[in-house]
Amino acid sequence: MRRLARLIGLFWSTAVAGEMEYRVNFALAVLSSAGGLLGALFGLSLFFGDTDRFAGWSWLQALVVLGVFTLLDGLTSTLLVPNLGRIVRHVRMGTLDFVLLKPVDAQLWLSTRDFSPWGLPDVLLGLGLVIWAGVRLSVSPTQALLALVPTVASCVILYSLWFVLATMSIWFVKIHNVTEVLKALVAAGRYPMSAYPAAYRVFFTLVVPVAFLTTVPAETFIGRGQPAWIVGSVLLALLLFAASRAFFRFALRFYTSASS
């Protein structure tokens, strides 16, 4: 465990060392995050119009959903997107060989090797929004702590879906567009599930688990969480994580290692 923490520390410090050369880029990332959040706030305000309740959610409660979404979006830009690019490059150039040759879990390596600080403003803004709305809604500390469970589960769910898609690179090699699929998926979680028509709700819950990504953590946070949904999101996270590992191991049988 200590070795893994040290290794990830080394990975990220080398990645950040490279990125920190570009200060303007950082300012732009902050601006783009703020702009994105403002746009989302405006979109959300349209739902509410004159009323202060929409589809059973108050304005502040809906802000919590938006905050969780922004947080996940930030994590996607920080870890998932850069590492996906790296996986595709590894498969295309055959340098996945070097990862597979290391006595370290290959999935862990591929998922954590890169780190882009540009998603961090989103993570901070998302957290800030959740905390700000939470204070105004006078969310109790125990509720906030309990909400960590489905939040962690939602991160694991998103990660597992992403890794399964990334693994497909072993067959299809160039799959950069998977990022778009993933972003669109998470974007659907920008608003509470009940904002969507019933058919979409079923789709986003049962077919692609978007409901578990943002709505369930937000509901738990504001004290409307139902135990069944919380347990369900943990089970789903465990199941998808196990599936992503099994799928990766299966895919490696088909890895031919770009010729040398």
Partner: peptide, 13 residues
């Protein structure tokens, strides 16, 4: 894996 290594003239780590 700790016991072996592979050096490839065409790929670099």
């Amino acid at each position: 894996l700790e016991d072996i290594t592979l050096v490839m003239g065409q790929k670099q780590q």
